[in-house]
Design a protein around this nucleic acid. Structure first.
Lengths: 200, 200
DNA sequence: CTATAAATTGAACAATTGTTCAATATTATA
DNA sequence: TATAATATTGAACAATTGTTCAATTTATAG
């Protein structure tokens, strides 16, 4: 029971931290502000997260967990039919649902920390490995992929997805956005279509 | 003459800001710290950059300028021979020289600001447009590219490059890095090789 | 040389930063 | 119910934040 209070409070604090970071930016969100927002003294936050670094580290865990939810539409489909087709894969990977799962500003602010924090870098590395492994499994479930090196294919697809997310975040205009996202979807379709011969 | 002192001082301050940001991170670099590092009072910094936002904005200009230097090896080659071949293009785009030009940690910290600052977003957008336009011109100089939509090709190549830079920054191990960068280079070679027929 | 404009200084500011600590309130266990 | 453990509070901390301002030094133009 006590365990639950502790866990719930930690969750509450992390979520508050996240929400304020969305509004004001990660670097402008202080412990005092989180306390005010959640109506609790800063000392209570420090009780559960002894230093701000630890708090940030937990925020990153929180964000990275959300990140993996991207596959849900595909997983759901795989439960019904036995394999996921190219269209579903491409549309899912490029769907803007991803942006709904977490805020890009907070995500990239956290990402920037990998360059000065080995632990955070490792966490990001593990997440990205998971993302690729999951895509490989999904690809392997498709008979069209027989004879293909799906591990490399997953790497190549994801690099387009991640480059696209980075680049497209600069465009607000919907027409611009849609035009460009079309190029990148086609690019991934081409990768999926590539024959085993061409691979050599 | 006075104009020169002012310009030099501004440059000095921006560079100091940049260097300290590389070491301690953008969010941990204060005006006082820059002052101490450059041996000048904070008030002098405020004299040239009335607010910190302006200072950050100038830092971003400074970084984005460096970014464009990526093309120098290709431009040099174009001065001698009449066109740049695929290998030079791919090797230049993926060369680690880019990392020597500016620090990725500072770059992504600045990038994260686009999500809450329209002006910064626009600057990034303009830079990325320039990068693609320059690549298009380089591609157009190559007779092999006749009949190809080099504008779209440039978009597709760059999305791989940018995704790769993002992803590869998580890997310190040289073997890992080289293996993966090989996948992405091949991916770009494939894009360059793609025939006009396949494009449809 | 003088007048003017720009460059530079140092002290001060209120606000906010992350963090500590002892005291109190609440809950679970024996 | 008493005891121990945990949850919560509020006040205080030194250090640092971005910024202001009046005074002084330095350089330039007339």
């Amino acid at each position: 029971m006590k365990e639950k209070i502790s866990t719930a409070r930690k969750q509450e604090i992390i979520e508050g931290f996240y929400r304020l970071s969305v509004i004001h930016g990660l670097e402008n969100t202080s412990i005092a502000k989180i306390g005010k927002y959640l109506d609790m003294p800063p000392s209570l936050i420090m009780h559960y997260f002894p230093t701000k670094d630890i708090l940030i580290s937990n925020l990153i865990d929180f964000i990275l967990e959300k990140y993996l939810l991207i596959y849900q539409p595909i997983i759901k489909e795989l439960e019904v039919s036995k394999n996921a087709d190219s269209t579903l894969i491409v549309e899912t990977l490029f769907s803007r649902n991803w942006n709904l799962l977490f805020d890009d500003g907070v995500f990239y602010s956290c990402f920037a920390l990998i360059f000065r924090n080995e632990k955070i870098k490792k966490e990001y590395r593990i997440l990205h490995k998971k993302l690729r492994e999951s895509l490989k499994e999904i690809l392997d479930s498709n008979p069209d992929m027989e004879g293909r090196d799906t591990a490399v294919l997953a790497e190549q697809i994801f690099v387009v997805v991640e480059g696209a997310y980075y680049y497209l975040s600069m465009f607000d205009d919907e027409a611009d956005y849609n035009l460009k996202v079309g190029y990148f979807k086609n690019q991934v379709y081409d990768l999926l279509r590539k024959t085993a011969v061409q691979q050599l």
